[in-house]
Design a protein around this nucleic acid. Structure first.
Lengths: 189, 189
DNA sequence: ACCTGAACACCGTTCAAGT
DNA sequence: ACCTGAACACCGTTCAAGT
Protein backbone atom coordinates (compact mmCIF):
# COMPACT_ATOMS: atom_id res chain seq x y z
CA UNK A 1 0.00 0.00 0.00
CA UNK A 2 2.19 2.76 -1.31
CA UNK A 3 1.62 6.26 0.00
CA UNK A 4 -0.41 8.55 -2.21
CA UNK A 5 -2.09 11.91 -2.07
CA UNK A 6 -5.52 10.28 -1.85
CA UNK A 7 -4.41 7.97 0.98
CA UNK A 8 -3.20 11.02 2.89
CA UNK A 9 -6.50 12.83 2.30
CA UNK A 10 -8.46 9.77 3.44
CA UNK A 11 -6.37 9.42 6.59
CA UNK A 12 -6.95 13.13 7.24
CA UNK A 13 -10.71 12.70 6.94
CA UNK A 14 -10.56 9.79 9.35
CA UNK A 15 -8.70 11.78 11.97
CA UNK A 16 -11.04 14.73 11.45
CA UNK A 17 -14.09 12.60 12.12
CA UNK A 18 -12.58 10.77 15.06
CA UNK A 19 -10.62 13.49 16.86
CA UNK A 20 -11.42 16.87 15.29
CA UNK A 21 -9.46 19.61 13.59
CA UNK A 22 -7.39 20.40 16.66
CA UNK A 23 -5.87 16.93 16.67
CA UNK A 24 -5.31 16.79 12.94
CA UNK A 25 -1.53 17.07 12.69
CA UNK A 26 0.82 15.94 9.95
CA UNK A 27 2.48 13.62 12.44
CA UNK A 28 -0.85 12.02 13.34
CA UNK A 29 -1.71 11.52 9.67
CA UNK A 30 1.69 9.92 9.16
CA UNK A 31 1.16 7.64 12.18
CA UNK A 32 -2.17 6.41 10.80
CA UNK A 33 -0.43 5.58 7.52
CA UNK A 34 2.49 3.91 9.30
CA UNK A 35 4.99 6.31 7.85
CA UNK A 36 7.36 9.07 8.97
CA UNK A 37 5.93 12.62 8.98
CA UNK A 38 8.46 13.80 6.43
CA UNK A 39 7.21 11.30 3.88
CA UNK A 40 3.93 13.22 3.51
CA UNK A 41 5.81 16.14 2.00
CA UNK A 42 6.61 14.09 -1.03
CA UNK A 43 2.89 14.00 -1.89
CA UNK A 44 1.56 17.22 -0.40
CA UNK A 45 3.37 20.58 -0.29
CA UNK A 46 2.24 21.52 3.22
CA UNK A 47 -0.49 21.19 5.83
CA UNK A 48 -2.60 24.05 4.47
CA UNK A 49 -2.93 22.36 1.10
CA UNK A 50 -3.95 19.12 2.80
CA UNK A 51 -6.65 21.04 4.68
CA UNK A 52 -7.75 22.60 1.40
CA UNK A 53 -8.05 19.13 -0.13
CA UNK A 54 -10.18 18.02 2.83
CA UNK A 55 -12.35 21.11 2.31
CA UNK A 56 -12.86 20.20 -1.32
CA UNK A 57 -13.91 16.74 -0.21
CA UNK A 58 -16.55 18.28 2.06
CA UNK A 59 -17.76 20.77 -0.55
CA UNK A 60 -17.99 17.98 -3.09
CA UNK A 61 -20.99 16.57 -1.23
CA UNK A 62 -23.03 19.76 -1.59
CA UNK A 63 -25.94 19.16 -3.93
CA UNK A 64 -26.88 22.01 -6.24
CA UNK A 65 -30.67 22.30 -6.57
CA UNK A 66 -32.21 21.75 -10.00
CA UNK A 67 -31.73 24.63 -12.39
CA UNK A 68 -35.42 25.06 -13.20
CA UNK A 69 -36.50 25.93 -9.65
CA UNK A 70 -37.14 29.61 -8.95
CA UNK A 71 -34.23 31.63 -7.57
CA UNK A 72 -35.50 31.96 -3.99
CA UNK A 73 -36.11 28.25 -3.67
CA UNK A 74 -32.79 27.52 -5.33
CA UNK A 75 -30.84 29.74 -2.91
CA UNK A 76 -32.64 28.31 0.10
CA UNK A 77 -32.05 24.74 -1.05
CA UNK A 78 -28.38 25.43 -1.73
CA UNK A 79 -27.85 26.99 1.68
CA UNK A 80 -29.49 24.05 3.41
CA UNK A 81 -27.52 21.54 1.37
CA UNK A 82 -24.28 23.33 2.22
CA UNK A 83 -25.20 23.33 5.89
CA UNK A 84 -25.97 19.62 5.79
CA UNK A 85 -22.62 18.84 4.18
CA UNK A 86 -20.80 20.90 6.81
CA UNK A 87 -22.66 19.36 9.73
CA UNK A 88 -21.93 15.87 8.40
CA UNK A 89 -18.25 16.16 9.28
CA UNK A 90 -16.67 17.24 12.57
CA UNK A 91 -15.31 20.81 12.51
CA UNK A 92 -16.02 21.01 8.78
CA UNK A 93 -17.32 24.57 8.91
CA UNK A 94 -14.15 25.91 10.51
CA UNK A 95 -12.03 23.86 8.12
CA UNK A 96 -13.85 25.07 5.01
CA UNK A 97 -14.13 28.66 6.22
CA UNK A 98 -10.39 29.02 6.74
CA UNK A 99 -9.44 27.19 3.56
CA UNK A 100 -11.80 29.39 1.55
CA UNK A 101 -10.50 32.55 3.21
CA UNK A 102 -6.97 31.58 2.25
CA UNK A 103 -8.13 31.09 -1.32
CA UNK A 104 -6.69 27.58 -1.47
CA UNK A 105 -9.88 25.81 -2.50
CA UNK A 106 -9.95 25.17 -6.22
CA UNK A 107 -13.62 25.01 -7.18
CA UNK A 108 -15.75 27.99 -6.16
CA UNK A 109 -18.78 26.71 -4.22
CA UNK A 110 -20.84 29.77 -5.17
CA UNK A 111 -20.30 29.22 -8.90
CA UNK A 112 -23.63 27.60 -9.77
CA UNK A 113 -25.62 30.09 -7.70
CA UNK A 114 -23.86 33.03 -9.26
CA UNK A 115 -24.60 31.72 -12.74
CA UNK A 116 -28.26 31.27 -11.85
CA UNK A 117 -28.63 34.76 -10.40
CA UNK A 118 -26.93 36.17 -13.47
CA UNK A 119 -29.34 34.40 -15.82
CA UNK A 120 -32.30 35.57 -13.73
CA UNK A 121 -31.17 39.18 -13.94
CA UNK A 122 -30.30 39.68 -10.28
CA UNK A 123 -27.87 42.44 -9.48
CA UNK A 124 -24.48 41.73 -7.90
CA UNK A 125 -24.80 37.93 -8.03
CA UNK A 126 -21.27 37.54 -6.68
CA UNK A 127 -21.90 39.74 -3.64
CA UNK A 128 -25.23 38.04 -3.01
CA UNK A 129 -23.68 34.58 -3.04
CA UNK A 130 -20.79 35.78 -0.88
CA UNK A 131 -23.29 37.08 1.65
CA UNK A 132 -25.14 33.80 1.76
CA UNK A 133 -21.91 31.78 1.94
CA UNK A 134 -20.52 33.88 4.80
CA UNK A 135 -23.76 33.52 6.70
CA UNK A 136 -23.87 29.74 6.30
CA UNK A 137 -20.23 29.29 7.27
CA UNK A 138 -20.48 31.62 10.26
CA UNK A 139 -23.65 30.03 11.48
CA UNK A 140 -22.41 26.45 11.19
CA UNK A 141 -19.03 27.27 12.72
CA UNK A 142 -20.93 28.48 15.76
CA UNK A 143 -23.27 25.50 15.70
CA UNK A 144 -20.40 23.04 15.60
CA UNK A 145 -18.29 24.67 18.30
CA UNK A 146 -21.32 25.07 20.58
CA UNK A 147 -22.42 21.48 19.97
CA UNK A 148 -18.94 20.23 20.74
CA UNK A 149 -18.65 22.24 23.94
CA UNK A 150 -21.98 20.80 24.95
CA UNK A 151 -20.73 17.29 24.17
CA UNK A 152 -17.59 17.95 26.20
CA UNK A 153 -19.74 18.82 29.18
CA UNK A 154 -18.94 22.53 29.20
CA UNK A 155 -22.75 22.62 28.97
CA UNK A 156 -23.38 25.76 26.95
CA UNK A 157 -27.02 24.66 26.65
CA UNK A 158 -27.17 23.96 22.96
CA UNK A 159 -30.63 23.64 21.39
CA UNK A 160 -30.32 21.99 17.97
CA UNK A 161 -33.88 22.78 16.84
CA UNK A 162 -33.64 26.44 17.81
CA UNK A 163 -30.32 26.67 15.98
CA UNK A 164 -31.88 25.21 12.85
CA UNK A 165 -34.78 27.67 13.08
CA UNK A 166 -32.38 30.61 13.39
CA UNK A 167 -30.52 29.31 10.37
CA UNK A 168 -33.65 29.20 8.27
CA UNK A 169 -34.57 32.69 9.40
CA UNK A 170 -31.18 33.98 8.33
CA UNK A 171 -31.50 32.36 4.92
CA UNK A 172 -35.01 33.79 4.49
CA UNK A 173 -33.66 37.21 5.41
CA UNK A 174 -30.93 37.11 2.79
CA UNK A 175 -33.10 35.57 0.12
CA UNK A 176 -35.86 38.10 0.81
CA UNK A 177 -33.28 40.87 0.64
CA UNK A 178 -31.98 39.67 -2.70
CA UNK A 179 -35.54 39.56 -4.00
CA UNK A 180 -36.44 42.95 -2.62
CA UNK A 181 -33.39 44.69 -4.03
CA UNK A 182 -34.01 43.31 -7.49
CA UNK A 183 -37.56 44.66 -7.30
CA UNK A 184 -36.40 48.06 -6.06
CA UNK A 185 -34.03 48.31 -8.99
CA UNK A 186 -36.81 47.31 -11.39
CA UNK A 187 -39.11 49.99 -9.96
CA UNK A 188 -36.52 52.70 -10.46
CA UNK A 189 -36.72 52.31 -14.22
CA UNK B 1 6.69 46.78 36.68
CA UNK B 2 4.86 43.87 38.18
CA UNK B 3 3.08 41.53 35.83
CA UNK B 4 -0.68 41.99 35.55
CA UNK B 5 -3.57 40.81 33.46
CA UNK B 6 -3.74 44.18 31.70
CA UNK B 7 -0.01 44.18 30.95
CA UNK B 8 -0.40 40.75 29.37
CA UNK B 9 -3.36 41.93 27.29
CA UNK B 10 -1.42 44.99 26.14
CA UNK B 11 1.59 42.90 25.17
CA UNK B 12 -0.75 40.61 23.27
CA UNK B 13 -2.22 43.52 21.34
CA UNK B 14 1.27 44.71 20.50
CA UNK B 15 2.30 41.34 19.09
CA UNK B 16 -0.99 41.07 17.22
CA UNK B 17 -0.43 44.41 15.48
CA UNK B 18 3.22 43.77 14.75
CA UNK B 19 3.30 40.08 13.81
CA UNK B 20 -0.26 38.77 13.51
CA UNK B 21 -2.33 36.08 15.18
CA UNK B 22 -0.11 33.26 13.92
CA UNK B 23 2.86 34.60 15.84
CA UNK B 24 0.92 35.38 18.99
CA UNK B 25 2.19 32.71 21.36
CA UNK B 26 2.25 32.68 25.14
CA UNK B 27 6.04 32.41 24.98
CA UNK B 28 6.26 35.49 22.76
CA UNK B 29 4.00 37.46 25.10
CA UNK B 30 6.20 36.39 28.01
CA UNK B 31 9.34 37.44 26.12
CA UNK B 32 7.95 40.91 25.49
CA UNK B 33 7.25 41.25 29.20
CA UNK B 34 10.68 39.89 30.14
CA UNK B 35 9.23 36.98 32.03
CA UNK B 36 9.04 33.18 31.83
CA UNK B 37 6.05 31.75 29.93
CA UNK B 38 4.77 29.96 33.00
CA UNK B 39 4.39 33.24 34.87
CA UNK B 40 1.50 34.26 32.60
CA UNK B 41 -0.61 31.45 34.00
CA UNK B 42 -0.74 33.17 37.34
CA UNK B 43 -2.77 35.99 35.76
CA UNK B 44 -4.57 34.27 32.91
CA UNK B 45 -6.01 30.73 32.95
CA UNK B 46 -4.99 29.85 29.39
CA UNK B 47 -4.32 31.16 25.89
CA UNK B 48 -7.98 31.04 24.79
CA UNK B 49 -9.02 33.38 27.57
CA UNK B 50 -6.23 35.79 26.64
CA UNK B 51 -7.51 35.76 23.06
CA UNK B 52 -11.02 36.38 24.37
CA UNK B 53 -9.73 39.39 26.32
CA UNK B 54 -8.08 40.72 23.17
CA UNK B 55 -11.40 40.25 21.34
CA UNK B 56 -13.21 42.25 23.98
CA UNK B 57 -10.63 44.99 23.54
CA UNK B 58 -11.40 45.08 19.80
CA UNK B 59 -15.17 44.95 20.28
CA UNK B 60 -14.93 47.74 22.83
CA UNK B 61 -14.10 50.19 20.04
CA UNK B 62 -17.34 49.51 18.15
CA UNK B 63 -19.59 52.56 18.27
CA UNK B 64 -23.30 51.91 18.59
CA UNK B 65 -25.29 54.37 16.45
CA UNK B 66 -27.66 56.78 18.21
CA UNK B 67 -30.84 55.17 19.43
CA UNK B 68 -33.16 57.60 17.69
CA UNK B 69 -32.07 56.72 14.15
CA UNK B 70 -34.38 54.44 12.17
CA UNK B 71 -33.67 50.70 12.32
CA UNK B 72 -32.26 50.31 8.81
CA UNK B 73 -29.82 53.16 9.28
CA UNK B 74 -28.94 51.89 12.72
CA UNK B 75 -28.14 48.37 11.49
CA UNK B 76 -26.11 49.70 8.58
CA UNK B 77 -24.16 52.04 10.83
CA UNK B 78 -23.50 49.31 13.35
CA UNK B 79 -22.26 46.89 10.70
CA UNK B 80 -19.92 49.51 9.28
CA UNK B 81 -18.63 50.46 12.71
CA UNK B 82 -17.96 46.82 13.53
CA UNK B 83 -16.11 46.38 10.25
CA UNK B 84 -14.01 49.46 10.93
CA UNK B 85 -13.05 48.18 14.38
CA UNK B 86 -12.07 44.81 12.95
CA UNK B 87 -10.05 46.28 10.10
CA UNK B 88 -8.18 48.53 12.54
CA UNK B 89 -6.30 45.59 14.03
CA UNK B 90 -4.38 42.86 12.26
CA UNK B 91 -6.25 39.52 12.09
CA UNK B 92 -8.93 40.94 14.36
CA UNK B 93 -11.81 39.36 12.45
CA UNK B 94 -10.41 35.84 12.79
CA UNK B 95 -9.60 36.50 16.44
CA UNK B 96 -13.07 37.79 17.29
CA UNK B 97 -14.87 35.18 15.19
CA UNK B 98 -13.22 32.27 16.96
CA UNK B 99 -13.53 33.79 20.43
CA UNK B 100 -17.21 34.47 19.85
CA UNK B 101 -17.80 30.96 18.50
CA UNK B 102 -16.24 29.52 21.63
CA UNK B 103 -18.57 31.67 23.70
CA UNK B 104 -15.70 33.13 25.70
CA UNK B 105 -16.45 36.77 25.03
CA UNK B 106 -18.31 38.32 27.95
CA UNK B 107 -20.33 41.20 26.46
CA UNK B 108 -22.62 40.30 23.55
CA UNK B 109 -21.84 42.66 20.65
CA UNK B 110 -25.35 42.25 19.22
CA UNK B 111 -27.02 43.33 22.47
CA UNK B 112 -27.88 46.94 21.55
CA UNK B 113 -29.12 45.97 18.10
CA UNK B 114 -31.33 43.25 19.48
CA UNK B 115 -32.86 45.66 21.98
CA UNK B 116 -33.54 48.17 19.23
CA UNK B 117 -35.17 45.62 16.92
CA UNK B 118 -37.28 44.39 19.81
CA UNK B 119 -38.51 47.91 20.59
CA UNK B 120 -39.28 48.50 16.93
CA UNK B 121 -41.38 45.36 16.72
CA UNK B 122 -39.13 43.38 14.41
CA UNK B 123 -39.48 39.63 14.51
CA UNK B 124 -36.60 37.37 15.58
CA UNK B 125 -34.25 40.20 16.57
CA UNK B 126 -31.69 37.70 17.83
CA UNK B 127 -31.60 35.74 14.57
CA UNK B 128 -31.46 38.95 12.57
CA UNK B 129 -28.50 40.28 14.53
CA UNK B 130 -26.76 36.90 14.34
CA UNK B 131 -27.15 36.97 10.56
CA UNK B 132 -25.66 40.42 10.32
CA UNK B 133 -22.84 39.56 12.73
CA UNK B 134 -21.92 36.37 10.86
CA UNK B 135 -21.88 38.24 7.59
CA UNK B 136 -19.63 41.01 8.90
CA UNK B 137 -17.20 38.57 10.51
CA UNK B 138 -17.07 36.31 7.48
CA UNK B 139 -16.57 39.18 5.13
CA UNK B 140 -13.82 40.85 7.13
CA UNK B 141 -12.03 37.57 7.80
CA UNK B 142 -11.80 37.16 4.06
CA UNK B 143 -10.80 40.78 3.53
CA UNK B 144 -8.01 40.55 6.07
CA UNK B 145 -6.58 37.25 4.87
CA UNK B 146 -6.73 38.36 1.25
CA UNK B 147 -5.14 41.73 2.08
CA UNK B 148 -2.36 39.99 3.97
CA UNK B 149 -1.66 37.50 1.19
CA UNK B 150 -1.47 40.46 -1.14
CA UNK B 151 0.94 42.21 1.21
CA UNK B 152 3.05 39.05 1.41
CA UNK B 153 3.39 39.07 -2.34
CA UNK B 154 1.22 35.99 -2.96
CA UNK B 155 -0.56 38.59 -5.12
CA UNK B 156 -4.17 37.46 -4.93
CA UNK B 157 -5.14 40.75 -6.59
CA UNK B 158 -6.98 42.38 -3.74
CA UNK B 159 -9.17 45.38 -4.59
CA UNK B 160 -10.02 47.29 -1.40
CA UNK B 161 -12.73 49.45 -2.97
CA UNK B 162 -14.51 46.52 -4.60
CA UNK B 163 -14.39 44.66 -1.31
CA UNK B 164 -15.97 47.60 0.49
CA UNK B 165 -18.69 47.81 -2.14
CA UNK B 166 -19.46 44.11 -1.77
CA UNK B 167 -19.64 44.60 1.98
CA UNK B 168 -22.16 47.41 1.66
CA UNK B 169 -24.22 45.31 -0.74
CA UNK B 170 -24.33 42.46 1.75
CA UNK B 171 -25.42 44.78 4.53
CA UNK B 172 -28.12 46.28 2.30
CA UNK B 173 -29.31 42.79 1.46
CA UNK B 174 -29.69 41.77 5.08
CA UNK B 175 -31.19 45.07 6.18
CA UNK B 176 -33.63 45.00 3.27
CA UNK B 177 -34.53 41.42 4.15
CA UNK B 178 -35.20 42.32 7.77
CA UNK B 179 -37.40 45.20 6.60
CA UNK B 180 -39.22 43.11 4.06
CA UNK B 181 -39.97 40.30 6.45
CA UNK B 182 -41.40 42.68 9.03
CA UNK B 183 -43.67 44.14 6.36
CA UNK B 184 -44.78 40.73 5.14
CA UNK B 185 -45.71 39.81 8.69
CA UNK B 186 -47.62 43.08 9.09
CA UNK B 187 -49.58 42.44 5.90
CA UNK B 188 -50.70 39.03 7.11
CA UNK B 189 -52.69 40.57 9.93
C1' DA C 1 1.72 35.86 46.29
C1' DC C 2 4.37 35.73 42.43
C1' DC C 3 7.90 34.08 39.43
C1' DT C 4 11.84 30.86 37.69
C1' DG C 5 13.64 26.67 35.65
C1' DA C 6 12.82 22.87 33.79
C1' DA C 7 10.25 19.55 32.12
C1' DC C 8 6.28 17.04 29.36
C1' DA C 9 4.19 16.13 25.33
C1' DC C 10 3.68 17.87 21.45
C1' DC C 11 4.03 20.85 16.61
C1' DG C 12 5.37 21.84 10.89
C1' DT C 13 9.02 21.45 7.94
C1' DT C 14 13.61 20.24 5.98
C1' DC C 15 17.02 17.28 4.35
C1' DA C 16 21.00 14.11 4.12
C1' DA C 17 21.10 9.45 3.69
C1' DG C 18 19.42 5.16 2.36
C1' DT C 19 16.77 1.82 -0.95
C1' DA D 1 11.21 7.95 -6.97
C1' DC D 2 10.09 7.41 -2.45
C1' DC D 3 10.89 7.00 2.36
C1' DT D 4 13.66 7.06 6.98
C1' DG D 5 16.01 9.29 10.78
C1' DA D 6 17.10 12.97 12.76
C1' DA D 7 17.24 17.43 13.39
C1' DC D 8 15.62 22.64 13.75
C1' DA D 9 12.90 25.84 15.73
C1' DC D 10 9.16 26.12 17.79
C1' DC D 11 4.36 25.24 20.72
C1' DG D 12 0.76 25.31 25.49
C1' DT D 13 0.78 23.97 29.99
C1' DT D 14 2.32 22.23 34.57
C1' DC D 15 4.76 22.38 38.69
C1' DA D 16 8.43 21.90 42.20
C1' DA D 17 11.34 25.13 43.92
C1' DG D 18 12.74 29.58 45.18
C1' DT D 19 11.85 34.58 46.99
Amino acid sequence: MALSRQAIVDAGLGILDAYGLGDLSMRRVADVLGVQAGALYYHVPNKQSLLAALSEEVLGTVLDPLDDTDPSTWLTGWAMSLRRSLLARRDAAELVASSLALGLVGPDPTEAGRALLEREGFHKPEATMATLLHFVLGHVVEEQTRAQMHALGVVAEFDVAASGARFEWGVRLIVAGAGRLIHDEAQRR
